[in-house]
Amino acid sequence: MIEFRNVCKSFADHRVIDGISFTVGTGEFFVLVGPSGGGKTTTLKMINRLVEPDSGQILIDGHDIASEDVRELRLGIGYVLQQIALFPNMTVGQNVTLIPELKHWPAAKRMARARELLGEVDLDPREYMNRMPSELSGGEQQRVGIIRALAAQPKVMLMDEPFSALDPITRTQLQELIKRLQRQLGITIVFVTHDIDEALYLADRIAVVHDGRIAQLDSPDAIRQSPADDFVADFFASPRERRDR
């Protein structure tokens, strides 16, 4: 589905991504985790060309995305941010149907899709379709942000620390929601977080990103049981394990 081939990226004289190579399988929940400044978000943003690599290749379904039309590429990839970024002057329904409208879906199909997805995230479309973002809680806004990213049925969804600004209860609810939706829809998700528990709960595989390189890429259980080096071991250690070292 997604393949990075020896990808590098620098900003000024700082090498942010240093020759990383990996693949993300179709339908996989793939989590990039690591300390701040390690290159997680830069890696994510290169998938939809918000950041362009200096060298190497990124392929989706075998096609080099450097040769793709940027607008069409981005319309085919869902994107959810920590900053929910709903359009404040548009209703919930208008926000959800924005990408399908840009892709020229008929109005009836757009509205049916919005109602379907609102129901999937426990927001009654009869109550929420015509609400404004300002009338929603933070958790409700993020639910709308998630289904807006799903509305045009993308094969890939990128999520950049989407739950980190939410309270713990809402965060847990949305983690359970996105995991259920991912399995139900079979969508490929690339998810960035610095939260170890979130990564362990959500991921099929985890890429531990450190200083622009992948320190380890494996299943959650394999990383916990057999960390590749001291950095990974310490990063995944519990507070008690750190104190005991």
Results as ranks from 00 to 15, higher is better:
residue 22 F to R: 07
residue 244 D to T: 09
residue 158 L to G: 04
residue 39 G to M: 13
residue 71 R to A: 12
residue 206 I to W: 09
residue 202 L to N: 04
residue 70 V to F: 11
residue 237 A to R: 12
residue 96 V to Y: 10
residue 62 G to I: 02
residue 171 R to E: 02
residue 135 E to D: 08
residue 118 L to H: 08
residue 112 A to L: 03
residue 3 E to L: 11
residue 112 A to I: 01
residue 61 D to H: 12
residue 86 L to G: 06
residue 134 S to C: 09
residue 200 L to M: 09
residue 244 D to H: 02
residue 112 A to D: 10
residue 90 M to T: 07
residue 134 S to N: 10
residue 40 K to T: 13
residue 116 E to W: 01
residue 175 Q to N: 15
residue 122 D to L: 15
residue 96 V to E: 01
residue 136 L to Y: 13
residue 109 K to S: 07
residue 224 R to I: 03
residue 96 V to C: 03
residue 131 R to G: 14
residue 228 A to N: 07
residue 173 Q to L: 13
residue 128 Y to H: 05
residue 131 R to W: 00
residue 235 F to H: 08
residue 22 F to N: 05
residue 81 L to V: 05
residue 116 E to L: 07
residue 213 R to E: 12
residue 38 G to H: 10
residue 136 L to W: 14
residue 31 V to F: 00
residue 62 G to M: 04
residue 119 G to V: 09
residue 121 V to K: 08
residue 97 T to I: 06
residue 98 L to R: 04
residue 24 V to I: 02
residue 103 K to N: 07
residue 18 D to R: 12
residue 125 P to E: 03
residue 145 G to A: 05
residue 109 K to T: 11
residue 128 Y to M: 05
residue 155 K to R: 14
residue 83 Q to N: 15
residue 82 Q to E: 08
residue 35 P to F: 10
residue 169 I to P: 00
residue 23 T to Y: 03
residue 129 M to P: 05
residue 197 D to Q: 10
residue 198 E to C: 02
residue 229 D to N: 15
residue 210 H to D: 14
residue 117 L to K: 07
residue 103 K to M: 13
residue 90 M to C: 06
residue 15 R to W: 08
residue 150 L to T: 09
residue 130 N to W: 10
residue 116 E to N: 01
residue 101 E to R: 13
residue 126 R to T: 09
residue 24 V to T: 01
residue 111 M to L: 07
residue 70 V to T: 15
residue 213 R to G: 14
residue 166 L to M: 05
residue 59 L to A: 04
residue 155 K to L: 01
residue 65 I to L: 00
residue 201 Y to Q: 14
residue 194 H to S: 11
residue 15 R to D: 10
residue 140 E to P: 11
residue 133 P to E: 06
residue 82 Q to I: 08
residue 144 V to I: 13
residue 86 L to K: 03
residue 82 Q to Y: 11
residue 4 F to T: 06
residue 206 I to S: 03
residue 58 I to T: 02
residue 219 S to T: 15
residue 89 N to G: 04
residue 135 E to S: 07
residue 241 E to H: 03
residue 155 K to F: 01
residue 47 I to N: 04
residue 14 H to F: 11
residue 165 A to S: 15
residue 184 Q to I: 03
residue 127 E to F: 00
residue 211 D to P: 12
residue 212 G to W: 00
residue 224 R to G: 01
residue 150 L to W: 10
residue 220 P to D: 05
residue 217 L to Y: 10
residue 216 Q to M: 09
residue 118 L to N: 06
residue 168 P to C: 08
residue 63 H to T: 06
residue 2 I to W: 05
residue 166 L to S: 01
residue 189 I to P: 00
